[in-house]
Design a protein around this nucleic acid. Structure first.
Lengths: 198, 198
DNA sequence: CTCATTTTGAAACAATCAATTCAGAATTAT
DNA sequence: ATAATTCTGAATTGATTGTTTCAAAATGAG
């Protein structure tokens, strides 16, 4: 703390988490450069002075949003895997879930952010790296467990196999944007599961 | 033609292809929304009135640029494949070339455009679809030839295998932006070649 | 050369951009 | 209640956005 707060005075009116959620949805859809400050304050239902007072400028807000996005996704990944019947089942669920999300027309904010800004923005790059590392480690651990339990018999380097899996999934997003073809995505998902399972 | 040109009058001073090339480089680096008209006219070394007179507005210019990008890439793909010693060799060259381009720090304008604008822009989407179809058909044909000549013995659906290959390659771009790790990309390239070759 | 036509450069356009200012409303401690 | 402090809303900032205007320069046809 830089200053000691002697008097509490007025409190912030808006719910910060709800506001971040709303801002995230706008950034997710329109991208960073494509989103104006008006788009944001309209969605967040706050005045720009409140935004600059509490969160900061456009870039700081974006950082908060992408952190929120990755945090929610990591939590969902853990939760979903905990429900799986076995390590292999958790991996195939992950792949099938990815297919479902994509063919329902959803995009991925992390992927969009990677291509739009991460190359020129170390702060965002680090957040995406951390998120990617988490997913990577999580899946690799599941594959290792599946092998220990005899569910998988492959002897490929699990590090590379996981990298492969995570990269593939980014390409599916692009494929669906371009071709809008659910069958293509479903077939690739099935092919990937077969390949891992052999 | 809407009007018959009775008098030639003054000719356009600037070289249109060179100007498109310059504009393409700016869009490629900064994205569509991130590029201003002044960025463009500065790079193209023309006045905005000349731009609007000959090419059109910002969106039309972008369309010209992305068309130029895909056309050049398709020509390079054909040229490179023609030099290969065999169909399988052409495919492995394709993969190794992709790895080299990525680890040298280059991005792909088509991939960036797909995530930034193709979802909301049918014109751009169609251009990217056409480009993707070309690459897809080209690689699938090479895989089919390799099988006919006995270079490959796999019996996977070549359609899915090619889709897989093209999707993978998009993920590598993201991986390199996030991790900046050449070894990861090289390992994935090698793994993909092994997998196709089996 | 002269005339009709086109391109060019500089200036300007309204609109929007991200960000700031500041008076007044709100709140808590005393 | 009073005082100290903080937050909010409306207005406004200067800069930049994409696009247009128009007079002057350039050029080919007759």
């Amino acid at each position: 703390m830089l200053t000691t707060k002697l008097v509490m005075a007025r409190n912030v009116e808006f719910n910060e988490e709800e506001a971040i959620q709303k801002a995230m949805e706008v950034f997710w859809k329109k991208g960073y450069s494509g989103t104006s400050l008006r788009d944001l304050t309209d969605a967040m239902k706050i005045n720009s002075s409140s935004l600059y007072n509490t969160i900061g400028d456009k870039h700081e807000l974006f950082v908060r949003c992408i952190k929120h996005y990755t945090a929610v996704r990591a939590a969902e990944l853990k939760k979903r895997a905990a429900l799986a019947q076995s390590p292999l089942n958790a991996v195939t669920n992950f792949i099938n879930d990815a297919v479902t999300v994509i063919v329902e027309g959803n995009s991925c904010m992390a992927v969009k952010a990677a291509f739009e800004i991460a190359a020129d923005d170390k702060v965002v790059q680090d957040i995406l790296k951390e998120d990617n590392d988490f997913t990577h480690d999580f899946l690799r651990s599941l594959i290792a467990q599946a092998r220990e339990q005899g569910e998988l018999t492959g002897d490929d380097d699990p590090e590379v196999l996981t990298d492969y899996l995570v990269s593939m999934y980014t390409g599916w997003y692009e494929s669906y944007i371009i071709h809008q073809d659910p069958i293509r995505i479903k077939k690739m998902g099935q092919y990937l599961i077969n390949q891992i399972s052999r």
